[in-house]
Design a binder for these strands. Structure first.
Lengths: 187, 187
DNA sequence: ACCTTATCTAAGCATCTGCTTAGTTTACTA
DNA sequence: TAGTAAACTAAGCAGATGCTTAGATAAGGT
């Protein structure tokens, strides 16, 4: 009946994600996407509708990757030590291939703040909520803190992780590791 | 002999700074600067050379403002409590006028990472070094920790502050205050 | 083999980007 | 009051921006 797509959408989104991750949303042009994804602008628009559409799919792909890290934490027998390991895993995840790209989610918050479109906001909240849920679970493991305390600890870890993500763009590994050490010293 | 400028450079830079602070470097166009600064593009280029030139001057103006907060801390009799107050002062400083603009320095790091031009990098390092110096001084106040401990604490505070700055774009005051509480709980 | 339908290429759209330049206006000196 | 030098206005530059569209190409059912 009709012609077949010459590309797999998941594969080209992976490449788009890398580009947005490195450059941010605004600094990534459709021409750059075209080159990196290896498909024509027509195909980009017919598959994803708009530049923002490509970005949202990239965010979804990104959250899938972060989900794997969260899965590992959730499956771990450790409590707080497991969360600490998540921190280490996370900075390793962001620094693959010698480029200081930070975290796509944190980068996006920094770039768009609360002016981000609803679909983007939704994607960000989704990953944050899932992560916080597992953090809470791990913080409760083998102790009986009240909900308020745990809540405050999750809040602390969340903002600490954001700091780590931005800072990873300019600081060295030692400084990041030291920060993680300090963060978990009294937790 | 010649005509007078109809604007004061410091005054128009103040407005440029506000714009960069809200929107970031890339998302701020020369046309937007023209409107906000209230002067023609010719004047912008004759006074500051380029868009980057305007940005660098904006950074300098920003660091002057942050310097006032650091001055207050340096003048304070308090040690660690003084640093905690600096954290509160800082989030208040970023949130003037109900816009969640975060911190211009942290925003710039998030946007450009280590790809920032030398002049921009220099300006960022200048303010960070000055702040860290005062932090160290305050951490040493009334205690005899070894240099390594203090160094690690400054590193911790620096990254925590970055986290606070990004997070201030999407979190509420209670969450930010709770984070500050947690940060200084065991320091 | 032919027709339908989706996918491809590549050129094009209006608008915006950072920056420049020709020509006018202003202020001060001589 | 005439001359000079800087600062103004506003039009314009080439190239980039996000997105669209006309026409060629290919895959399958009949």
């Amino acid at each position: 009946m009709a012609r077949k797509k010459e590309y797999v959408e998941d594969e080209v989104i992976e490449k788009a994600m890398e580009l947005f991750w490195r450059n941010g949303y605004e600094s990534t042009s459709v021409r750059m996407l075209e080159k990196e994804m290896g498909i024509n602008q027509f195909s980009i628009y017919s598959s994803f509708g708009s530049k923002e559409g490509v970005f949202i799919q990239s965010l979804k792909r990104y959250t899938q990757k972060v989900d794997e890290l969260i899965d590992k934490l959730a499956a771990s027998a450790e409590g707080i030590t497991g969360i600490k390991q998540y921190f280490y895993d996370f900075i390793q995840f962001t620094q693959k291939s010698n480029i200081n790209r930070g975290c796509l989610i944190v980068n996006t918050v920094a770039e768009m703040g609360n002016q981000a479109g609803a679909a983007i906001m939704a994607e960000i909240q989704k990953i944050v909520e899932r992560r916080d849920k597992v953090f809470i679970q791990k913080l409760n493991q083998g102790s009986n803190k009240d909900a308020e305390t745990v809540n405050k600890q999750v809040n602390f870890l969340s903002i600490a992780l954001a700091g780590l993500a931005v800072s990873s763009k300019v600081l060295n590994k030692q400084q990041l590791d030291d920060f993680i050490d300090s963060t978990f010293e009294y937790l």
